[in-house]
Design a protein around this nucleic acid. Structure first.
Lengths: 344, 344
DNA sequence: ATGAAAGCGCTAACAA
DNA sequence: TTGTTAGCGCTTTCAT
């Protein structure tokens, strides 16, 4: 049933040698126009397509990149993927995308599975579990094999390779400062993503901004937990006990849940409480009111990572030349913050 | 630099033949325990991994499935992908995921690119543009080559292959009936996704429910457009001119935008106007208030498609045995609809 | 128990 | 201009 035709069959049918066919199909100058045409016509007629596998085996190159995504349901990662996709496509590279579900084992297995000649290089984001375990041998042995890796978003110093990251401290700092400038004095921080250095960095940025402008951080204004369970209760509890006029939510979900709580309590946003979110995804845009948020340029992150990797694969950059690219962020003002600005 | 070791190198190092190594590594009974151990130890020591490419070339099987996703930013598709991923993983299949961006050309190119021995079969969702053009040759020629395809969500009768779909008419019917039972009398329909048969089906279900229960459909209560531009204005306009107490939004985005408009106008949901959405994604869950919605079981859709394809690939189902699986939906009640029920 | 050789689909150096 | 041959990494049949 599988009717795919091979070079060999063409050769037999036309009574020429295999290499003549190969050359003709590759439009080699060695072959006469006549034979070329004959062969090409026959190939076209029978919808000949070169077998990629055989080509890859020959070239030791697959023009395929392995992508590791911790979680495709996270809008940010989906957007990064799009960026990678765009560049890969332009440059004629295939993507083999794998979802690790933030599991260490899945990550190890996936890398194992793809490290057999299937892919030329990796673009990866480290899974939460791996980051907690701090076990990176699977990445490092790939690098030792000479397969380049570009890490994005979640990185670690123990993996020596190209990286594309967000400046979390600075972005959080700017977000918090923005709230202060718009007149907020009691700024809470809410997080449903914990345990990762990148979240630690965001908290650091928040604390830094407060301190810088003479505000003493108040532990009662900081709610940090992993996952959303029980978060609404904790927010309600905080609002019952503490004066709050600004909230910095360090991830999409905490932004959404916080907004739901405030709306339910009939607290006006931004008049009574302002909110600034992080990662400006789909939730920020469509919530009521639309949330001001730190935009992360996921697409650029993906493009940058892909470009770097492909440049390496094509020898434009030396394998040993390691680089960390920091993608800027930008605060997008929407309706959850006041326009009023205080100059410090 | 690329230190990956081959069977040939092992043979040379140990002074045995290539085939002995091959057999030893495959634990063949032909090889003596002693040599086996020697070879296996050496292989382990040097982290030998069989080259997948060579194996695939040999077996004419890649254990890789090509996935076509129109748009990864749509939460529903991301969830389908997860379902596929889960099953593929269990069965030891690789996924090569491609995003078509709802473009005809990209879809054709992708299929072309992968139809060269790279993949054993496809799981695909037809792109919007293709569906509009009604050109399906690229799918059909793949099928003719003997490569199985399973289509999910968006399908078309001119492509004769396995399909996994949602019963859109019935689901929309149930959603509308639900609004009527909760006491709504002037039920609007809002859509930002047009031009596809599946959306047509949802409108059909809505109209069917109205008619069935003796309500004459009112064109002024139906807002259908492609994309979100200008939608809020149209909704506001409708609310200014028409009495409305229920809204059926046939996609996630229109649900989100409608909610934003109602909230802005300070119209209480569900007291003044109830909303039922479709596709129960992340927007429904996190909006204010959380939206009652037709849940589509994206994960099940993905699993079903993957299972069907793999069964075919492994010969458990005949290639000619074509089947359409309908995945049920379920109305999830949240806070955008009244609890009050009227029995008809 | 071990090895030689052919072949999967293709390219490329070399020969004719 | 065309063909022969070896080889990419591996499996498998058939000798030995």
């Amino acid at each position: 049933m599988n009717k795919r035709i091979t070079i060999k069959q063409i050769a037999q049918a036309l009574n020429v040698s295999i290499s003549t066919v190969s050359k003709a199909l590759n439009d080699s100058y060695e072959i006469s126009e006549e034979t070329k045409k004959k062969i090409q016509d026959y190939a076209a007629l029978h919808k000949y397509k070169p077998n990629t596998l055989a080509l890859s085996l020959q070239n030791k190159k697959t023009r395929t990149i392995g992508i590791l995504i911790p979680n495709i349901l996270t809008y940010y990662f989906a957007r990064v993927l799009r960026g990678i996709e765009k560049v890969a496509n332009e440059k004629g590279y295939n993507l083999i995308t794998c979802i690790t579900n933030d599991s260490y084992k899945k990550e190890v297995d996936t890398i194992e599975m793809l490290s057999n000649g299937t892919i030329d290089g990796f673009i990866a984001c480290i899974s939460v579990e791996t980051l907690k375990k701090e076990k990176f041998d699977h990445f490092n042995s790939v690098l030792e094999d000479g397969t380049p890796i570009v890490l994005y978003d979640r990185v670690h110093k123990d993996i020596l390779c190209d990286k594309v990251v967000t400046d979390n401290v600075k972005s959080a700092y700017k977000a918090t400062r923005f709230l202060m400038r718009s007149g907020c004095e009691n700024i809470a921080l809410i997080s449903t993503s914990e345990g990762l250095n990148i979240h630690e960095f965001r908290v650091k940025g928040y604390l830094k901004a407060l301190t810088k402008y003479g505000v003493v951080p108040n532990d009662n204004l900081i709610i940090r937990q992993e996952g959303e369970e029980g978060l609404k209760e904790r927010i309600n509890d905080m609002l019952d006990k503490q004066p709050v006029d600004g909230i910095f939510t360090i991830d999409e979900v905490s932004g959404a849940l916080t907004t739901q709580v405030l709306n339910k309590r009939n607290i006006h946003i931004p008049e009574a409480i302002s909110i600034v979110g992080f990662t400006n995804g789909i939730l920020s845009r469509y919530s009521t009111p639309p949330l001001s948020s730190v935009n992360r340029f996921a697409h650029t992150t993906g493009e940058t990572a892909a470009r770097r990797l492909i440049d390496k694969l094509e020898g434009k950059i030396d394998f040993e030349d390691i680089n960390t690219e920091i993608i800027r962020t930008q605060l997008v003002e929407r309706d959850s913050t006041k326009k009023l600005f205080i100059k410090f």
